[in-house]
């Protein structure tokens, strides 16, 4: 024990590029593996979810209109910032019970994954788009285009890597997202929000909530502004409920609860395509 009294951090939500407390005024406690209080987290409410969606919606246009090169730069910038704060994240992961080895690996993989997807920004439309040789005198091409607003239920395990692996392919493709962080170790997501906030990511592109899946899952499915849900959670009833409600506005539902985020399977470029629409355009060829 040092003589100095520690300053404990208050973990808030991350909405629209700001760090507000939950409007509900509620908090919940995160304990370390020995049962000691690690920190208090904001317990996001339905209204916080709604606010996050509003912020997310208002960021769509600007983000989707960024050039691929610019999005690539920003993702790379996130990696740079994370690299600079590597020690902090390793410590935080260790505080959740991870070994130094696995904590280090998770942070390094997270950085590398950001770099990996940063590199895809100006390539996926080339790889997954097409020029279609139609049988009439028309030029016809299909290209991936951002789907819009994505609600992500991040995995509980690997609170940093699981978050990054879902967030990066989503935003690199021009989408904006609202993420419910790992319920078990949510504070790392908020630390990561600080990284995002200092990485030129426009406010509202990524919004991070902490709280209970059991409280918020219903709104994932029912909110009519959500274009797709990425679900890394396991609860079958919650999944079915979200899938059923997805039908309210034909949301796309992407289930990623069987992915081993520490493996190569966690950085699939087809993840980008999960939240892309294919747009096909026609134009006559004549004089």
């Amino acid at each position: 024990m040092s003589d100095r009294l520690n300053i404990n951090k208050t973990y808030k939500l991350y909405i629209g590029g700001k760090f507000p407390r939950t409007e509900s005024g509620r908090a919940y406690t995160i304990e370390d593996s020995k049962g000691n209080t690690l920190c208090h987290m904001s317990r996001a409410s339905r209204k916080d979810f709604r606010e996050a969606i509003v912020a997310c919606q208002s960021a769509i246009k600007g983000w989707a209109n960024r050039t691929a090169f610019n999005r690539s730069q920003i993702l790379y910038r996130i990696a740079e910032m994370l690299e600079g704060r590597k020690a902090q994240f390793v410590d935080e992961l260790i505080s959740t019970g991870a070994t130094k080895g696995s904590a280090t690996k998770e942070v390094e993989l997270s950085i590398d994954r950001l770099v990996y997807f940063a590199g895809w920004a100006d390539k996926y439309t080339q790889v997954f788009g097409s020029v279609n040789p139609v049988a009439t005198s028309h030029f016809n091409f299909s290209t991936p285009e951002s789907m819009g607003l994505i609600a992500i239920m991040a995995p509980d395990e690997h609170p940093l890597l699981g978050l990054v692996s879902n967030l990066a392919p989503c935003i690199v493709g021009g989408n904006t997202c609202v993420i419910l962080a790992s319920e078990v170790n949510p504070f790392i997501a908020i630390s990561f929000a600080e990284v995002l906030n200092s990485s030129d990511v426009p406010g509202g592109v990524v919004n991070i909530l902490t709280g209970f899946k059991s409280e918020l899952y219903k709104h994932f499915g029912t909110h009519m502004n959500v274009n797709a849900i990425i679900c890394c959670a396991d609860n079958k009833d919650q999944i079915i409920n979200m899938q059923e409600n997805a039908a309210l506005n034909v949301k796309r539902f992407i289930l990623r609860n069987k992915v081993n985020w520490m493996s190569d399977a966690g950085q699939d470029p087809y993840f980008i395509m999960d939240t892309q629409e294919i747009k096909t355009a026609w134009h006559p060829i004549g004089i």
Partner: peptide, 29 residues
Amino acid sequence: RAGVLWANTYNKFDPTSPFGGYKESGLGR
């Protein structure tokens, strides 16, 4: 925000050309 855009033409279809909707017009191509 739509899956098929026709510029200076309309209602053209071709087996090589993906077709399908955004939003409540469906999913998949």
